[in-house]
Amino acid sequence: MIAMTLRPVLRFARLPILAGALALGAHMLADPLVAQEALPGSQMARQSLRPYWHVFAAYAIVIVLIGGWAFSIARRLRSLEERLVD
């Protein structure tokens, strides 16, 4: 019963979990505290690089989600065509 209830939830949580992991990755890469405690100068440099990481992560999310959707459609299309051929 619990598994049955959770299954569709998990199915729809898949997208945000994936995207969230990407965002978290960008956060970890960009956060000077997570990266390392370094000299103030290089920390400044990291801090100012952080917006770039966020932009890259956002554009990566766009590619992953749209590509993922396209890929899943293609997979379903192929499997259905195979089913219809035999």
Binding site: P16, A23, A58, I61, L65, I66
Partner: peptide, 9 residues
């Protein structure tokens, strides 16, 4: 989903 993840970033 794209809106909700790029927005917070």
């Amino acid at each position: 989903t794209i809106v909700l993840t790029t927005g917070p970033l």
